[in-house]
């Protein structure tokens, strides 16, 4: 597990108050929304805010685009790596 991977998992847990889940219980490949972790659109918004603030990356309101970025932990890692200043 890379450092960034762990950091993002911890961020998901902290920003959404998922107290009963640990980072290694989150599969980096699994979908975050719907079937996988079962997050909803409000979670997406909270997570988007947290990611944007923590990594200081540009993230628009475009929900189609964000859906791809937020597909899985791996997708988020890729996003942060690509856009981090």
């Amino acid at each position: 597990m890379s450092n960034l991977d762990l950091q993002i998992k911890q961020l998901i847990i902290d920003s959404l108050n998922l107290e009963d889940i640990t980072p290694d219980e989150i599969d980096s490949d699994a979908p975050l929304f719907g079937d996988g972790l079962g997050l909803d659109s409000i979670d997406a918004l909270e997570l988007g805010v947290a990611i944007k603030k923590t990594f200081n990356i540009a993230l628009t309101d475009n929900s189609e685009e964000n859906r791809e970025h937020f597909a899985s932990v791996n997708a988020l890692v890729a996003l942060v790596e690509a856009r981090a200043a």
Partner: peptide
């Protein structure tokens, strides 16, 4: 016009 992380942060 649309609501997402960007707008939320502007409000914050």
């Amino acid at each position: 016009t649309s609501f997402g992380p960007d707008t939320a942060i502007r409000m914050m």
